[in-house]
Amino acid sequence: MPGTITVGLDGTEHALAAADWAAQEAVRRGTDLRLVHAWVWHPTDTAYVGDRASEERTLRTMLSEAESRVAEAHPALDVSTELLVDDPVPALVAEAARAGMLVLGSRGYGTLAGYLIGSVSLHVLRMTERPVVMVRGTGQDATVRQPAGDVVVGVQDADEAGGAVIDFAFAAASERGTSLRAVYAWSIPTVLLWSPGSMWLAEQEGGLEPLHRQILADALSPWREKYPEVDVVEHVEAGTAAEVLLSHSDRAGLLVVGRRTHDTGLRRLGPVTHAALHHARCAVAVVPHA
Rank of each mutant, 00 (worst) to 15 (best):
A94S: 07
A97D: 04
L116A: 05
L208F: 14
P147N: 02
R145F: 00
L104T: 08
A23M: 05
E67D: 10
G239C: 09
D263T: 07
A171W: 14
P222C: 03
V284F: 09
W194P: 02
E67G: 15
E225K: 15
H37T: 00
A18Y: 08
T81K: 01
L9M: 15
A172P: 06
E209S: 04
R213A: 08
A15C: 02
A99W: 00
G253K: 10
R260I: 01
R176G: 00
A18G: 12
G206Q: 13
L208G: 05
P189K: 08
V70N: 03
T128V: 10
L180Y: 07
I188W: 12
P75W: 04
T58S: 12
L254I: 05
E234R: 08
P2V: 02
A66E: 03
W200L: 10
D159M: 09
L77Y: 06
R28L: 15
R130F: 04
L192K: 13
R176I: 00
A19M: 08
A73M: 09
E55C: 13
R181P: 02
V103Y: 10
L84K: 01
A23R: 04
R130D: 02
G114V: 03
D45C: 01
S68D: 14
P189I: 05
S247H: 12
A171F: 06
